[in-house]
Design a protein around this nucleic acid. Structure first.
Lengths: 109, 109
DNA sequence: TCAATGTTTCACTAATTATTGAATTATTGA
DNA sequence: TCAATAATTCAATAATTAGTGAAACATTGA
């Protein structure tokens, strides 16, 4: 994973509404959530929500699929894994500590 | 871990110089690095470096210890673990996926 | 105590980001 | 095609953040 993309992803997550959106989608799993559902769940204005969804999408952390008049957003677990890996790889120069693989195996589509 | 602290930590990491500082310290492990070493390694001005070290410290991601005229900075692995946990916990409502514990066991002091 | 070294704080400017309401686009069902 | 619903884009303002150079603070060794 490229440093620039890591920064984009971290910046996307470093905001209250977006962090809550992302957590909501991580918990929701493959079934995802629509902006309407998220707007209600989080008490966020549709405009603001849309703005933040775009940020998260651009960062690759979530993706949308249309279903009728609804969009279904889902967390992108592979990118999440890459992100965690970037932060933890090569810890302690590989010495004197466990370089544990941080991996989630859900919702990989 | 509190949401506000998670956001602080993510925001701290979401900046090029700070991400590089943090990675440098994660790789360095228990022996840490001084601002002087980091300034040279990263090609960052001392003033800017100091500003970013403060941000990372306030977020709890790194900590300093004085050694003569040098300060030795080290990554705080426990906070890192908490952060990764916050992002990944309760994935997919605990169903149909592995809720893997993301944990680093190095430099825990 | 004084000069040198390592690091931080301060004050300022430039740039980026969040929020809001109004307008717009896409889809569905009558 | 028209009205209704779902979501996004646009434009403007307010707030936050990064980078810079000068000054200040802390520690060491002579």
């Amino acid at each position: 994973m490229e440093e620039a993309n890591v920064i984009k992803a971290l910046a996307a997550l470093a905001q209250e509404t977006r962090l809550r959106i992302f957590r909501l989608l991580v918990v929701a799993g493959p079934q995802g959530q629509t902006p309407g559902q998220m707007s209600e769940a989080l008490g966020a204005a549709p405009t603001a929500l849309s703005f933040h969804l775009k940020e998260l999408s651009h960062a690759g952390l979530i993706a949308a699929e249309r279903n009728g008049r609804n969009l279904i957003y889902r967390a992108s677990i592979p990118l999440m894994n890459d992100l965690l890996g970037f932060l933890t790889d090569h810890c302690c120069e590989g010495q004197a500590c466990l370089d544990v693989t941080t991996k989630l195996d859900c919702n990989t589509g």
